[in-house]
Design a protein around this nucleic acid. Structure first.
Lengths: 127, 127
DNA sequence: CGCTATCATCGGCTCATGACGATGAATAGT
DNA sequence: ACTATTCATCGTCATGAGCCGATGATAGCG
């Protein structure tokens, strides 16, 4: 016992890694936006870049992440790569999430400790 | 255009914040473990500490996070606080997640860029 | 055959996030 | 009243993770 006492464990919960990785894949707003976008139909990297207003490298990295997670897949066509959802069940998961969000209202937002609170400067850009 | 060029935007996707926060709440292995544990029945902080082998402060913070998110709730009883799931729909979400995991096998794991790469051992342990 | 467009990857930067220990408040039991 | 137990909160530390720009590879086009 007390084997993990001493700073960052660097080994949180390996058992739940799969599920946690799945949720984490969708935890990022950008990735979630990409996922939803792909849920609406396939898209290229440039399309996502334009629509999301992010750098190409950023989008590409997120796509690689989602692809490695097996949530999306790509189909090279010419010099472009079309990305699309690889798992229809993902829609169920998103639906369940929205159902839960509807149930909680929008209470699911920020946590004092964990979450995204206390960011220091909370500047709403278009506000 | 070129409005967000210049380092961390500090303003990712505000619209998807709720869903992303929800997923992020479950993205952490520890929080997911807590959630599942509470899905099996209410528990006190000490119980979770013992069962998860984490510091009391850690568990307490995670509980506070989940509580703020409206996913769980607590009921003070004596000097203890019983925590339990506040949303039955959460079970649906977890079920959908497990369904997706079953569909993908366990392909959902690690990403080279994002997502907990360089972990090493993949032990699923008990269900 | 050179040019452009699209994408993947590398390296660096910055902040958020999870972990811990220590402290303080509230409650129950002796 | 004193003490023991349980929980919440604060401060700190280290790493993960997202963002960007720049570079390199690949594939179509003029």
């Amino acid at each position: 016992m007390t084997m993990n006492s001493g700073g960052a464990t660097t080994e949180p919960r390996t058992e739940l890694g799969a599920a946690a990785a799945l949720f984490r894949g969708l935890a990022d707003p950008t990735r979630l936006a990409i996922t939803r976008r792909l849920a609406a139909g396939r898209a290229r990297v440039v399309d996502l870049c334009n629509e999301l207003g992010l750098a190409q490298s950023t989008v590409s990295s997120h796509l690689a992440c989602l692809r490695e997670c097996g949530l999306i897949d790509s189909r090279p066509e010419g010099r472009a790569s079309w990305y699309f959802l690889a798992r229809p069940e993902l829609l169920d998961l998103l639906a369940a999430a929205e159902g839960l969000l509807a149930a909680t209202g929008d209470a699911v937002a920020l946590c004092p400790n964990y979450g995204t609170a206390a960011a220091g400067d909370m500047n709403e850009g278009d506000a």
